[in-house]
Design a protein around this nucleic acid. Structure first.
Lengths: 350, 350
DNA sequence: CGACCCGTGGAGAACGGTCTACAGTGACGC
DNA sequence: GCGTCACTGTAGACCGTTCTCCACGGGTCG
């Protein structure tokens, strides 16, 4: 039923076909007040017949595009899959849709390009952008930020309980008998104290727990060298040290995968424990079998989208949601080898 | 430098501030002909000062949004990461940006909602949508399809060389001595003969190779039960059979991961070979160590985006790009166990 | 000195919707 | 018979750009 090729059918075409005004058609498609059943039927059938679809651009210009934007730092961050899944769930049944904009570089420009009228609201995972800048952005368009531990006034936040999650990991490792526990995390900027990023908190809590256990001098922090490189190299250096840790707490599952790779490559799979964060789908794979903290990524995504929808309905006062965490213990939680004299075989105690 | 909160700064604001007309400002930002250096400078400084950013919606309504849409069937398909990476590379340096729209359900509506004026062009991975419908879509907006082996006239295609890739896998397995080789793939609709999907081709070539090797009666095809469920269950059933295959050719790496999981869960890691397709980043992980066919996903994404840009420049005649394949042999390519006498009732012939 | 041209800037009509204000109509009550 | 009212439908401005003319001014040339 398509009309002249190359030109799409507009609301005027429909109006003409149905013998009514453009405004009338608009009312019908918006399901607005003041439409008689007769007109509705005629318009609907014209719409059907012409295959009319409202232009998002025109709608956006006038008011809303019915699109929500999800900005994530990297295409391949596995955690974002959970967020996206949750967000899509939350908007299903509403006229809204979620589109994804991976930054893979400068986050400011990605966020701005989203805010430039493409979407009605933004969900973003951008730990490092300036709070003041965000408040400004939030003044122009509703914003929900994921993983920011500040309590801003202009936008909403959704975070996991990083303190509790990290403490659960540390307690678990202590219980297994680990003492020499290293932390493998993101590059410096993302983990600097005071930034309030999840990774900064996890690092800080790691330090706290070590100190509380009287292990302050065993603290070892390793980082991904480069923001775009995997953490495999850093992990390899960690396990090659003479004071090799018996356990590695990774900043998140992707890093944990790299740690596992390095550990496995060194033949230390059953001598060095690895723990991740996010409980991504791969963690439960039998070959990976990674202990990890579930911070309800899907719920976080759903909650973020819901908050955004509320803001689009007119809510002004900020909300801050904290997801609960749950530690999933799996095979990567090996016990520490009790001494160094054993020959390279299977030798953890138990 | 932000102006009155809540209202964003428009081209008129800039024009007023610079003491020129809106048209003049438009010329400056589009770098169009007919601007004196003096005016350019004044306008630029006004833009700077006001923090002006052109509205995408208004631009889109008028002509182009400078956004390209990438539609993928599932959020979590690991192959799409490669595509996205390539596409982003290709548009970097141009004024275009790539946004992602995961379908996770009805592809028609996802595609249409992209076509509704949000983007200037579409790259899509939608093996099953009707060719005629696509031609129609392509009449309204430039389209590049990934993984469609048809040769349409209205849109471009980018595919991998599925025949060669699959033959390489089969030869590799035959060379290792495998005879009882099963194929684990997507649900029926995606692999039905004649659909021309990559998975249909891979299945067909699998059958051909088996037949050519005189092993037609050992053909075993297993499928994911449900479109949204992982293939783990199907894989588990496959390895539980009394005529268990010695090698599993998976439709792609995600399925191969499930196959590996089932094989590992059954304690058959070194007795059943698994081969994937796409050579996703996980394949080279030491704990996964999956033999897989690299079909240059990044190049495919880059090529698709480049084609789209060409179309936006005015190209009409269709292009069809075929990416080369390369088999990466890794540890999952175990040899078949040579006898049935081993403990635990392994009893496949030969 | 008038015709012409080129370089520069502006006026105003699109683009495709939404939304406010208002007009027409028939029913109803007094 | 007339004012009121609820209900439908329309006219037209508006959103923020782009783009096609057109006007203006000054230099060149015949």
């Amino acid at each position: 039923m398509s009309i002249r090729k190359g030109r799409s059918v507009t609301i005027s075409d429909v109006a003409e076909a149905a013998g009514v005004s453009r405004a009338a058609v608009s009312k019908v498609i918006r399901d607005a007040y003041g439409v008689s059943p007769g007109m509705r039927a005629r318009v609907q059938s014209a719409i059907e017949q012409l295959g009319y679809r409202p232009s998002v651009a025109a709608r956006a210009l006038r008011g809303s595009s019915y699109r929500l934007g999800l900005e994530v730092p990297h295409v391949n961050a596995r955690f974002m899959t959970q967020i996206m899944t949750g967000a899509k769930q939350a908007v299903s049944g509403t006229p809204y849709q979620v589109i994804l904009a991976p930054a893979d570089g400068p986050e400011y420009s990605t966020l701005e390009s989203l805010a430039d009228g493409l979407v009605d609201g933004i969900i973003a995972v951008s730990p490092l952008v300036d709070p003041a800048w965000l408040e400004d952005l939030a003044g122009r368009i509703p914003v929900v930020m994921l993983g920011r531990h500040d309590t801003p006034s202009g936008y909403d936040t959704v975070i996991g309980d990083d303190r509790t999650g990290t403490r659960a990991i540390m307690r678990h490792l202590f219980d297994l008998g680990h003492r020499r526990i290293a932390h493998l995390t993101e590059p410096e900027p993302v983990t600097a104290p005071g930034t309030g990023t999840p990774h900064a908190i996890r690092l800080q809590v790691y330090r706290e727990c070590m100190a509380e256990a009287g292990l302050g001098d065993l603290v070892q922090v390793a980082r991904r060298h480069d923001d775009s490189e995997p953490a495999r190299q850093a992990a390899a250096e960690l396990v090659a040290r003479h004071d090799r840790p018996t356990a590695i707490v990774a900043g998140h599952d992707d890093i944990a995968l790299d740690a596992l790779a390095a550990v496995a490559a060194a033949g230390l799979r059953d001598r060095v424990a690895v723990v991740g964060y996010d409980n991504t789908d791969l963690a439960e794979h039998p070959l990976i079998d990674l202990t990890s903290v579930d911070q309800q990524g899907v719920e976080m995504g759903a909650e973020a989208a819901t908050m955004l929808l509320e803001r689009l309905q007119g809510r002004i006062e900020p909300r801050h949601y904290v997801a609960t965490t749950h530690l999933h213990v799996r095979g990567s939680s090996v016990r520490p080898t009790s001494d160094r004299a054993e020959t390279g075989g299977r030798d953890q105690l138990e």
